[in-house]
């Protein structure tokens, strides 16, 4: 392992660099991304998928994809963290939509939700005061804000949002 010591970035964790090394086939770099991000990634996937097994599947698939596609990450086009979570979210949304949506809703009651939905307003509060996103969200009317947050965080589609918030679909899309 001595040969790999030089590739372990010390804090703060340099994700862009770890991705660069992963692109060259450095598994220790991939592991360092896992150590730094996996629990946050699992948290994001749990909010979307609710069930731990599905959420772990999304994180698993994301790391396999990162291994395959790290060379296509271009730091000039954005942050490594954004790139990583975009892959995770895509994977989780695909699982949510295609593969298991019916299954998920059928089991809603019996399985119990491991991650109860958080109040949308509480999410806004968690964003830092300096956050441009927070200022932007606070400018939206409450219903619209709630819609955006529920959609992003829990993966609700237009139709589901309309049902959840008791709003006709047309209003939701506008």
């Amino acid at each position: 392992m001595t040969a790999a010591l030089g590739t372990m970035p010390s804090s703060p964790f340099d994700l862009n660099n770890a991705l660069r090394l992963t692109a060259r086939g450095d598994r220790i770099a991939l592991r360092s991304i896992y150590d730094a991000e996996a629990s946050r990634m699992l948290g994001v996937a749990m909010r979307l998928l609710r069930r731990r097994a599905l959420a772990e599947e999304a994180v698993h698939d994301t790391f396999v994809q990162v291994w395959q596609k790290a060379a296509s990450f271009d730091p000039a086009r954005g942050e490594g963290r954004t790139w990583l979570y975009a892959i995770l979210r895509n994977r989780a949304l695909n699982i949510l939509r295609g593969e298991t949506r019916t299954d998920l809703t059928e089991d809603f009651e019996s399985m119990g939700l491991e991650a109860p939905g958080e109040d949308a307003e509480a999410l806004v509060v968690r964003l830092s005061d300096a956050s441009a996103l927070r200022r932007c969200l606070e400018r939206l009317e409450p219903l619209r804000r709630k819609a955006v947050l529920l959609a992003y965080v829990e993966g609700l589609s237009h139709g589901e949002l309309a049902g959840r918030l008791g709003v006709p679909l047309g209003t939701m899309k506008s």
Partner: peptide, 19 residues
């Protein structure tokens, strides 16, 4: 890419879950 960067902060609000 712009929207992803704008909304990325919301991912940081997810409570970590230890795998």
């Amino acid at each position: 890419a712009q929207w992803q960067a704008r909304l990325a902060e919301l991912d940081a609000t997810a409570p970590p879950v230890l795998p």
